[in-house]
Amino acid sequence: MSADLGWDLVIDWIRCDGYGLCGDLVPDIIGLDDWRYPLVHPGPIPNDRRHEVQRAVDCCPMRALKLVRAGSMPRR
């Protein structure tokens, strides 16, 4: 049931070092701020984009990103 709601991107801010690869790979879903830290656009990530975003998650050198079912984790 919850797969219909899409996916949330959870960022471990302590791990993230601002490499910015995630934002380069899916710029319409993950923006980058002035220091190349991710700015996730509001709202869940739709199912049909999941694999692209998963690739961005896998590319993170700091392993700071995680895709979880929408609403399954608190927002922070």
Binding site: W13, I14, C16, D17, G18, D33, D34, W35, Y37
Partner: peptide
């Protein structure tokens, strides 16, 4: 100083 947006943003 652990999280980028806080470290850089607050300094800016």
């Amino acid at each position: 100083g652990q999280c980028g947006p806080c470290l850089h943003g607050l300094r800016s």
